[in-house]
């Protein structure tokens, strides 16, 4: 069983720390994954910073809650 959504998600100009990861908060399917910005683990441990990627976009049901929640208007969901 695998869900195959037909939505494309694009994120531009994301400042995830400043908005408090609002797209993640509102997404009912958990499509967005926060991944470490630093490649070096020790840098990440000292000051963890994340960027948001739509890693599980196949699960997107197109509700567009993330589009409405993004304060920068940086998320686009298209078919």
């Amino acid at each position: 069983m695998a869900y195959k959504g037909s939505f494309r998600i694009k994120i531009k100009g994301c400042e995830s720390e400043s908005c408090g990861f609002r797209c993640q908060d509102v997404c009912p399917r958990g499509v967005f994954l926060a991944v470490p910005r630093h490649r070096d683990r020790s840098q990440h441990a000292a000051r963890p910073r994340y960027r948001i990627v739509p890693r599980f976009r196949e699960l997107c049901d197109g509700c567009r809650e993330c589009v409405r929640a993004c304060p920068r208007g940086g998320i686009r969901v298209s078919t």
Binding site: G20, Q24, D25, G30, F32, L33, A34, Y50
Partner: peptide, 9 residues
């Protein structure tokens, strides 16, 4: 839980 941290902060 790392998943909760990365998906839901």
């Amino acid at each position: 839980c790392a998943c909760r941290k990365l998906v839901g902060h």
